[in-house]
Simulated scan of single mutants.
Amino acid sequence: MQHTHENPWKIVSEKEVYDNPWINLTEYQVINPSDKPGIYGKVHFKNLAIGIVVLDEDMHTYLVGQYRFPLNQYSWEIPEGGGILGIDPLDSAKRELLEETGLKAENWIEIQRLHLSNSVTDELSILYLARNLQQFEAEPEETEQLQVKKIPFKQAYEMVCNGQITDAMSVAAIMKVQLMILEGKI
């Protein structure tokens, strides 16, 4: 069987099911790649997902802990947040880092772009590495009750490996930075 890169899905109709300031849910009536009728639901995200791995001169990083409502559990993560579409994602990353940790960074490197759950969403994540830090006052949003901890980067990597960090952006970004360290790029 030969595969092409052309879209094998045919949309028969679409209906908006739900909409709020952050997401939109659309249900599609489709003809699937097997030429049979079906449905497909898509969650459209109205913001970018932004994540930042911070490394100081001593190879320490900062994790943010917060209770995640959808999971009904506490989560340790890299600093993360939303970036408004149409605005430079780096500006959003700088805002999120200051908001959650009180840190400003002089050096920024985009390290990865990810689609977080491409089977049902179009959410795009952009991950950064931030270096050369200055400490200011954190400015969390009213919906955030955050705990920030500074730990050796190696400990954050171990937290990913032993399942203490499960957030997808955090896992991907920490693993990417670990690879960069092993390759001598940091």
Results as ranks from 00 to 15, higher is better:
Ile181Gly: 14
Gln178Asn: 12
Leu129Ser: 11
Tyr157Gln: 15
Val171Thr: 12
Arg131Glu: 14
Val171Ile: 15
Asn162Gly: 01
Tyr128Phe: 15
Asn72Phe: 06
Gln155Asp: 13
Asp91Thr: 15
Thr101Ser: 00
Asp56Pro: 10
Phe136Tyr: 09
Pro140Trp: 06
Phe153Asp: 02
Lys185Asn: 01
Thr166Trp: 04
Gly102Pro: 13
Glu137Ile: 08
Ile87Ser: 11
Tyr157Lys: 14
Trp108Ile: 04
Asn162Arg: 07
Glu137Asn: 14
Gln66Ser: 14
Ser119Arg: 15
Gly83Asp: 03
Glu183Trp: 10
Tyr62Pro: 01
Met180Cys: 03
Ile126Ala: 06
Val177Ser: 11
Thr166Gln: 06
Ala172Ser: 03
Gly86Ala: 03
Lys176Gln: 15
Gly184Gln: 12
Leu133Phe: 10
Asp91Cys: 08
Glu142Ser: 07
Glu106Ala: 12
Thr101Trp: 08
Lys104Asn: 14
Glu144Ala: 08
Ile126Pro: 01
Phe69Trp: 08
Leu90Lys: 04
Gly163Asn: 09
Trp76Asn: 00
Leu85Ile: 05
Asp167Leu: 09
Ile151Met: 00
Met180Asn: 11
Ile87Ala: 15
Thr143Glu: 13
Asp56Val: 02
Thr143His: 10
Glu142Pro: 06
Asn72Trp: 10
Glu158Val: 06
Ala138Asp: 02
Glu100Asp: 14
Leu98Phe: 02
Ala130Tyr: 07
Ser125Cys: 11
Ile111Pro: 04
Leu63Lys: 00
Phe136Met: 05
Ile181Lys: 13
Met159Leu: 11
Glu99Cys: 12
Ala138Thr: 01
Leu179Asn: 14
Gly86Leu: 06
Asp58Cys: 06
Ala138Gln: 04
Arg113Lys: 08
Ser92Trp: 09
Ile165Asp: 14
Glu57Asn: 06
Lys94Asp: 07
Gly83Thr: 01
Ala172Val: 01
Glu158Thr: 14
Gln73Ile: 00
Pro140His: 01
Arg95Tyr: 15
Asp58Leu: 07
Val177Asn: 10
Lys185Thr: 11
Ile84His: 07
Val64Ala: 05
Tyr62Thr: 11
Val148Trp: 03
Thr121Leu: 02
Gly86Val: 04
Gln66Ala: 02
Gln178Cys: 09
Ile181Leu: 15
Gly184Trp: 07
Glu106Asn: 15
Arg68Val: 10
Tyr62Gly: 00
Gly65Met: 14
Ser117Leu: 10
Met175Phe: 08
Thr101Asp: 00
Pro79Lys: 00
Lys154Thr: 12
Leu124Thr: 13
Leu90Met: 04
Trp108His: 10
Gly83Lys: 00
Ile181Tyr: 13
Leu85Thr: 01
Ala105Asp: 05
Ser119Val: 13
Glu110Cys: 07
Ser92Asp: 09
Gly163His: 10
Arg131Tyr: 11
Asp88Ile: 02
Gln66Leu: 07
Pro152Lys: 06
Leu98Gln: 07
Gln164Gly: 12
His115Met: 14
